[in-house]
Design a binder for these strands. Structure first.
Lengths: 305, 305
DNA sequence: CTATTCCATGCTAAATGCGCATATGAAGAT
DNA sequence: ATCTTCATATGCGCATTTAGCATGGAATAG
């Protein structure tokens, strides 16, 4: 019996019944209420009858074939409306969440990425999901990894290899290394550029990522060329700006440089091909939907380039 | 399609699914949540899956065979709990109404009734249904009828005949007329008392109800006796009190006098039998459940006398 | 390596819900 | 007075849904 009661109580307070109840009160008749609720009159009649049995008293007086709200029903009515409104709010909130009109997303990346294409992608993302509160953090490689691992942020961008087992990475951008050459420079005619071609050519190198810088140095060493490093800088933007002013040739990540191409500079592949792989990294192997959406946004943005 | 959507939206936000969702969050596992909700684990699993499909996003991450609440799910959770609480409140309120722990009841009656047994019945009623807000009004016969008809009150007590077609009456108390005799009075020995026996006996009469007073007068006239009206009063209580002090003999409604019997007085039937019929009167042929309950209370109280 | 725990799914039986048709009762029209 | 109309209630059959049982797969503990 106790179980039967429990089961009943769960089943009985069907929102449909409450909904029909509300409509009947509003419309004044079962027939019109049923029509408004999109079902037939018999169904509505039965729902009302069932609901009355559930609550344990008459919601309506059957007065000459018409239904009139009873005082008891009136007492219940307000509370029913409140409950239905709250259910509606759940539905609205669910829809908001589903369509990214709610929630927040924190992303971290090295400054070079933020400065370049990430800000553009962020703009695209916010255009798609305007209600999302997006936070962009920047930090060095290790800081980025630490922030992701500690879940201070939802996701981040890191150059591979990751060398950590507690993080999940999805490669989003694999590209070679490029020489940023002033348009009037003689090497601008070359199809590609190698270390030998750069002998005695003033270079602009980035000191940031140990791995990529080391690989560039290694390429020169292999070719037996001592690089003429005129400027060491720390951002792709400044490297490209220097190249554009004819200071020298910058050797940078191809994709990142793409964001800075202007009339004054052209890009030529550097050989040997030094692959640089950036990944979208999360602490959780199954990132939040917003993070996924951001990732999709990145991919879409990169495809268009 | 449109209809399908409408049906879906109605059906989908099944409280069961929300309930299971809440339990899973609270318990941390589908299995325990299912057990707590009184159904099997597969059913719960399916409900969660269906609910996720309904809301349009993942409520939980399936992480190594365990379910962990997703950030999106967390966003929804509070709102779901709120909605469920409100449904619970509807259920509680319904139960309160069904068991008379809520609501209000307004009753009107002539002062003589109120003063006598009605206050006692009201006390009984409130003992049964302590949460009901009971209002007792008093008024003259026509006032009472008007208040009932205008629905300023839920029900009232009127002496029959009612002589109105817009009111519904149920007789609750039919009794004769009684002489309230001081214990030491010689007539206290008599089995019954008629007008002749009361010749030259100081009388206490009520001037209130035209019909009953007129009937008493008529009885005397028929017997050719001129009543010796020593006191005219307006309440049964005062009439009985006067009789108790030996002022005279009161001729009053039997049932109402019963409430005032004390050592000093005894009751003897007055002949001819002047029947007085009090009724429970409502404007609506189907009175509110509280009014019905009050009526039942009256009947029970009167049966015990 | 096995036992246990937990979630997901295929399958079947039962319950639920809806619509259609129809009965009943009341009010209004001819 | 009878008929039409309107509104609610109910019997019946079908489609959908739901629950349970049994099973499978994956991860963890011993």
């Amino acid at each position: 019996m106790g179980k039967a009661t429990a089961t009943r109580t769960l089943k009985n307070f069907n929102p449909r019944a409450m909904e029909i109840f509300r409509e009947v009160v509003r419309m004044g008749s079962v027939t019109s209420a049923a029509k408004k609720a999109g079902l037939g009159q018999p169904a509505a009649s039965r729902l009302i009858a069932q609901f009355e049995q559930d609550v344990g008293f008459e919601l309506f007086h059957r007065d000459k074939g018409r239904l009139t709200l009873s005082p008891d029903g009136l007492l219940l009515y307000d509370e029913v409306v409140r409950a239905l409104d709250n259910i509606a709010r759940v539905r609205i909130l669910a829809s908001d969440i589903a369509e990214f009109r709610s929630g927040q997303l924190r992303i971290v990346a090295p400054p070079s990425l933020l400065e370049g294409f990430l800000s553009e992608i962020a703009a695209d993302f916010l255009k798609l999901y305007p209600k999302v509160r997006l936070t962009l953090e920047s930090g060095g490689v290790d800081t980025v990894k630490a922030m992701i691992a500690s879940r201070a942020v939802d996701a981040g961008f890191v150059k591979l290899p990751l060398e950590r087992t507690d993080l999940t990475a999805e490669s989003i951008l694999e590209c070679g290394t490029t020489c940023v050459i002033p348009a009037q420079h003689e090497l601008a005619q070359a199809k590609s550029v190698d270390a030998v071609a750069l002998r005695n050519v003033p270079l602009i190198l980035l000191g940031l990522g140990s791995s990529s810088r080391a690989q560039v140095e290694a390429a020169f060493a292999t070719a037996g060329v001592v690089p003429t490093v005129l400027v060491e800088t720390h951002t792709i933007g400044s490297a490209c700006a220097l190249a554009a002013r004819g200071v020298g040739i910058a050797i940078v990540n191809h994709a990142l440089a793409s964001a800075y191409v202007r009339d004054q500079i052209i890009l030529r592949p550097f050989v040997p091909d030094i692959r640089q792989d950036y990944a979208f990294v999360t602490a959780d192997p199954t990132p939040s939907r917003l993070a996924k959406a951001f990732l999709e946004c990145c991919k879409a943005s990169l495809l268009n380039k």
